[in-house]
Design a protein around this nucleic acid. Sequence first.
RNA 1: CGGGCUGUAGUAUACCGGUAGUACAAGUGCUUUGGGAGCAUUUAGACUGGGUUCAAUUCCCAGCAGCCCGACCA
Length: 424
Amino acid sequence: MRQSKLFTKTRKEMPADETSKNAELLIRGGFIHKEMAGVYSYLPLGLKVLKKIENIIREEMDKIGGTEMRTSVLQNKEIWEKSNRWDDAVVDNWFKTKLKNGGEVGLSFTNEEAYSDILKQYVNSYKDLPLYPYDFKNIFRNETRSKSGILRGREFYWKALYSFSKDEREHEMFYEKAKEAYKSIFGRVGIGHLTYMTFASGGSFSKFSHEFQTLTGAGEDTIYIDENKAIAVNKEVYTDEVLESLQLKKENLVEKRAVEVGNIFSLGTKFSAPFDLKYKNEKGEEKLIIMGSYGIGLGRLMGTVVEVLADDKGIVWPQSIAPFAVHLLALGDDETVLKEADKIYESLLKAGVEVLFDDRIGLSAGEKFSDADLLGMPWRAVVSVRSLKDLPAQIGKGIELKKRTEEKGKIVSEDELIKILKNV
RNA sequence: CGGGCUGUAGUAUACCGGUAGUACAAGUGCUUUGGGAGCAUUUAGACUGGGUUCAAUUCCCAGCAGCCCGACCA
């Protein structure tokens, strides 16, 4: 994409109404726009990141048997009454509104009811199970206090998968697969080294749920990590009894702040019972389905990546979720430079490399460099009078290629540039 | 929901009981081009409502909005 055609602009100043690093950098870079507290629009660059994260999650969910669908945002009061979660005294973060005819509807804050209700119509036999439907959608929670930029919003984009299994054993097998899929997701988006599977409270059907907690001071949770075993315990279940059952020793645990980027949860028959969600087994006996839930907030995940990987110059995107693989800069308004950069841009596009081309004229070199640092593409390729002179012995003209995370770059030819960027 | 702080151009800010200044952004012209460049010029602003006052953007009250701390987080 040509940067001259990108309507968003970078800002030098900190937004006055944000203090978190993720919001500051994402707003300054033009990735997101704040609509109101806890509500953000995703601008072109931000949406690219979100979609890349979405695709990684989709691949991992499909790999363990997930089937993507889309449940509605407007929710029918009746189905929530079945599970006793319509009442504001039970769930205090509902957004509710009224139909013209006076009927009440709610804006989805989670999906158990919707899935249970839908699947009741389609699941009758053991032959229909197990099932792993999931969706990506915006959900709404009327938080009393949203904060930390996109880490905790009132409207946010998430992935929710639900498992519908015949029995506990089948459920456990999937649950273990889901754990691995989650580890793979957080590894692929670049925060695996800071993310710990964390034991947390499990509700009435299992002793624990499992959270995936990424270390950052921006997080809201306190966890205790055993670094050798690479697992952690949430403060909410940090008791001697729990530590003993997990065979963890207090002296091996380190207290840290972390943000919950995902969680998986065994639901047992908590929802299948009120929805009478049953199947007939081989003997014709009716059995309740065993459920599990598996969620990831994509905006929070994106914000977390910014929080933990950014440096003092700006965002550092991992290759896997960067809006573009490379930021190509044409320095100065020299015509030879502009022509050459344009040619390189076209070649990169033809080679299938995702490239943001800073073709804006009249800007100083410093401004373009600062923008490139703030926007955080993993590679920066500079074409300038100087770079073109720097490769006299070869046929190609020089391009200075540098990683976002490194201080010094090197001069490469156009062919080398394409070769390197095609293989990242 | 309890406590605290704050609302001034698109953004970030300053001063002031007598109707507002600066920087960046934007428009125009010229110069400049390896770390947010310079000169000239133009455009653009006091959250809303009420009160006090000769006069309120400034003081007071309420509302609304934002941020922070805490509580909450199915």
